[in-house]
Amino acid sequence: ISTLVLAEHEGGSINSSSISSVEAAKCLNEDNSISMLLAGSGPSLQQAATHASLCHPLISQVLVADSDKLMHPLAETWANLVELVHKKGGYTHILASSGSFGKNILPRAAALLDVSPVTDVIEISESCQFVRPIYAGNALCKVKYTGESPCMLTIRSPSFPVPASETRSSAAPITQVDLSTFDEVEKSRFVKRSSQETERPDLGNARIVVTGGRGLKSAENFKMIEKLAEKLDAAVGATRAAVDAGFIPNELQVGQTGKIVAPELYMAFGVSGAIQHVAGMRDSKVIVAVNKDADAPIFQVADYGVVGDLFEIIPELLEKLPEKK
C-alpha cells in the first residue's frame, strides 16, 4: 500500500488537518509508504517542506511542486498536478483532509483518474472499507470501494487526532516534482482572499469552543461570547441562525454546512440544537448547553445543561471562571 497525502500549508507550516490525514493513512495498513505532496511557490513553500519532512514519523517522502502557477490552491491546477504525480507514483490511496481545500480539489482529481471518491471519512476499518456520515450525521454509512487504484478519500480530521508523542528524529527526504510537462491553460484566476484577523485559536483545532445562537439576539450581544472565549482561550463558533441574522461572519459557523469540530469542551449559549448544528459538534468530548427553554433539543446532547437566561449566566461565568494560565 502506498498513499499520497495532499497537504495544505500556511505561513511556512503544514496545517494540522493535513497531518491528521497522515494519521488516517496509518489506519489503512501498518505497511504503508506515505508521501506528502505540497504545492506553492517561494520561500514559504520550502519552509513548509522542511516542516512536512519532520511533522509525522510515518512520512517516507515529501514531494514539492514549486511553480508560480501553483501559488494559489486552484482546483484546476491542483487536480492536474495530482494526476501527474499519480501517473508517476502509482499510489493505492490518495487522501486529503475534508476542508474546503480537499473538497474542492480531490473530487476533480478523482474524475480525471476515473474513480469514485469517498467524502468525509470518519473511520477506516479496512484498506477499502470506510464509515462516513450521511443525512447530516443522522446515519452512518459503511462503504466499500471496489474500483481500481487509487482509492481517494477526504478525511474528517477531528476523527483522526495526532498523538502529541508523534515526533521524529531525522527528516524525511524532500523531492522536487518535475513540472517540465506541466503546461496549464489558465481558465481560473485568483483575485483575493479576505479573512478576519484574530488572535483567538482556530475554530477547527481549538481545545475549547464557545458558541452563540439566535438567543444572543444581536451582534452587540454576541460580543459577550467573544469575551467569554477570550477568558477561556477558546475559539468562537456560531449557529447558522446567528450567521444568517448577521451577528457574526459565516466562517465561524459550526454545523452540517459549516465547520465540523470536536473540541474537549463545547459551550453552547442560546443554541436550540437543530440537527444541522448538532451534526457539526456532536463528537465534542464535553458539551455544555445554556438555554432558557428547558425543552430545547440541545439538552439531549449536552453533558451539562443550565436552564436559564444567558444574559445573566454569561456575566456570572465571566466573573467566576478562573483566570487562564
Partner: peptide, 19 residues
C-alpha cells in the same frame, strides 16, 4: 465502483445532567 455495506444509527450520547 462502490458498495454500501451497511447504514447504521450514530452512537447516542449518554444523557447529561441539568445543573
Amino acid at each position: 465502483d462502490m458498495e454500501v455495506v451497511e447504514v447504521s444509527e450514530p452512537p447516542k450520547r449518554k444523557a447529561g445532567v441539568i445543573l
